[in-house]
Amino acid sequence: MMREEILTFIEKNSRADLKELAIILGTDEVTIANELAQMEKERVICGYHTLIDWDKTTMEKVTALIEVRVTPQRGEGFDKIAERIYKYPEVTSVYLISGPYDLMVILEGKSLRDVSMFVADKLSTLDQVVGTATHFILKKYKDHGTVMGQIKTDERMVITP
């Protein structure tokens, strides 16, 4: 119960410190610290990241979703080929998916050419890969439950009974 409460809260506010978490969740700092440490150890918590809209920076970044069809290997299923793909640092996510394709690979590169070359040279040439479909992301509207670039203003009347 406490675990889910902690996780639900920090999923959206990972910068909250122990003291604040203890107050907000109605417990003490030791309990929170222990739970966090335990969940990190169990890899329930896999990291504390920051959600960035790179489009608003000078950094050049191109993101693509690549559907990959592969031949699963006996005894290994999809795991081995997935691992082969996720080892590349430019790959940010790999999911096993249902539907006509098997893997969804999310890739970040500096340019369209960068990403295209990765697909042509590295991905498509893997033995088990039988097909790919590359989709470049043109605009990110919402990510991790957050609408990009939206600042909500309070439109309520300032004092109401």
Binding site: R156, V158, T160
Partner: peptide, 23 residues
């Protein structure tokens, strides 16, 4: 509340903790 509302409304940069409805 009405009287106080009029005062607060005159202060556009005030932070309000006076609202009786969900955010």
């Amino acid at each position: 509340i009405r009287k106080f509302f009029d005062v607060v409304s005159e202060m556009p940069d005030a932070i309000s903790l006076g609202v009786g409805e969900p955010d």
